[in-house]
Deep mutational scan, measured.
Amino acid sequence: MDEEYDVIVLGTGLTECILSGIMSVNGKKVLHMDRNPYYGGESSSITPLEELYKRFQLLEGPPESMGRGRDWNVDLIPKFLMANGQLVKMLLYTEVTRYLDFKVVEGSFVYKGGKIYKVPSTETEALASNLMGMFEKRRFRKFLVFVANFDENDPKTFEGVDPQTTSMRDVYRKFDLGQDVIDFTGHALALYRTDDYLDQPCLETVNRIKLYSESLARYGKSPYLYPLYGLGELPQGFARLSAIYGGTYMLNKPVDDIIMENGKVVGVKSEGEVARCKQLICDPSYIPDRVRKAGQVIRIICILSHPIKNTNDANSCQIIIPQNQVNRKSDIYVCMISYAHNVAAQGKYIAIASTTVETTDPEKEVEPALELLEPIDQKFVAISDLYEPIDDGCESQVFCSCSYDATTHFETTCNDIKDIYKRMAGTAFDFENMKRKQNDVFGEAEQ
């Protein structure tokens, strides 16, 4: 370990593993360490099931009705991949897709007046949907046509809207959309967690709705994908990429100290040895004095023996409960997957309800979601602090990732990755940087 590296990475969460992969592909010498004996950090999948019970201090362990412990891979952080989103792009560019198998999530649902409705995925579904009345549908269709044709580089498509100054509230007004449709559009399509976006320039919202539609167009059922064997497969896929390009991995490796000289990182000390480096990437748990708390998320993992009611017996789905429907500031989400994804025993389902904490009784906040899941065989409640770095790391060369937020997709995580890359490399992130180099010394032969 007593060696000189360009970059040392602490923690094998998804953000850290993707950055480690990119740095290795770009010719950097990388050492990647984790104090845990497993990959994934906060974003790991726990197996066998006995391990999950232990982690949540349920000492009696799983009953026999849960089947074989080894058949379970339970995500600690519930997220899906947008089919046309940035993480899929990263997987394709790096060819990490060859280590993973994905399934399309069967449906996306939205909560309205105590019931759940399928988010329409085709024009026919939209016309048949009970989510809105006849005239509302016509106006909504006009709005969707506007979004589909919108091109930020072609003012002819703006229809009198200025993407940089017109607020989204004004765009909704222009198409005369009612409150329910606005809730549905902002939260189930643009996937905002709160209503803060309404008074911001509309460009980002329009682009988010386009991303949803384009992702949906790829597979038809929903815009989301999920990897077989759980999300823990993602960091491992990128760790393989890093290793192929010469990255060194050490799990179960305690970090005793991060060594600084004149305010700059110069190395990491572990078990009496020092590895030197020019730059350091880590998750917040490794540098508690360089991060601040930015809120909390509650996630309740529920094991069920039945599909969720009114989802047409889907073996995977997402449910969004827009905040307006339950008098909150932030949406509540449910991600459900099952034995069909090799993450649970035969006939079992895993539904994870999550939201940003707003009160001193977080469990009560998630109740509307839990009511949709009854009866629940077993619950595991996790309340996590969200951390963000206190500075950009440019001076110390210590670059810290943000905690995983309450969103049900990876777009915010990818933004964090691109942002850290830019601060480390001094140049904007470009997907081309992730391409495997042809015929290089570490390149794998085609399968």
Rank of each mutant, 00 (worst) to 15 (best):
D2P: 00
D2Q: 07
E3A: 08
Y5S: 00
I8Y: 11
V9W: 06
G11S: 05
G13Y: 02
T15N: 03
S20C: 14
G21S: 08
G21C: 09
V25E: 12
N26T: 06
K29D: 13
D34V: 04
Y38E: 00
S45P: 03
E50K: 11
E51K: 09
K54Q: 03
F56L: 11
L58F: 05
L59D: 02
E60D: 10
S65G: 06
S65V: 04
M66K: 00
R68L: 07
R68P: 06
W72Q: 01
N73S: 12
L76H: 11
A83V: 08
M90F: 13
V105G: 06
K112A: 07
K115D: 08
K115M: 10
A128K: 04
M132R: 06
F140Y: 00
R141L: 10
R141T: 11
N149W: 14
D151S: 14
E152S: 07
D154E: 03
P155S: 09
G160D: 04
V171E: 14
Q179P: 12
Q179N: 11
I182F: 11
D183A: 05
H187R: 09
T205N: 00
N207F: 03
S215H: 15
K221T: 12
P223A: 10
L228I: 00
Y229C: 09
Q236W: 09
F238L: 04
A239S: 05
L241I: 05
G247Q: 15
E261W: 15
N262H: 08
R276L: 06
C277W: 02
C282V: 15
C282G: 04
D283F: 08
I287N: 13
P288A: 13
P288Q: 01
R292F: 12
K293G: 06
A294Y: 15
G295L: 08
I301T: 11
L304H: 00
S305G: 10
H306P: 04
N310S: 08
A314T: 08
S316G: 01
C317A: 13
I319M: 09
I321G: 09
Q323L: 08
Q323K: 04
Q323Y: 09
V326M: 06
V326D: 04
V326W: 10
R328S: 06
K329F: 12
S330T: 08
S330I: 06
S330L: 02
Y339C: 11
Y349L: 13
I350K: 07
I352N: 12
I352C: 13
I352E: 12
I352W: 08
T355S: 13
T359I: 01
E363R: 09
E363V: 01
E363G: 10
V366D: 01
E367R: 14
A369Q: 01
A369H: 02
E371L: 03
L373T: 03
E374V: 10
V381A: 08
A382S: 07
P389I: 15
D392G: 11
C394I: 00
Q397L: 07
C400D: 01
S401T: 01
T407N: 05
T407D: 15
E411K: 04
T413V: 13
T413I: 05
D416H: 13
Y421A: 05
Y421L: 06
K422E: 12
A425D: 02
D430Y: 00
M434V: 10
M434F: 12
R436Y: 09
D440V: 00
D440G: 10
D440P: 08
V441G: 01
F442L: 09
A445Y: 11
Q447W: 15
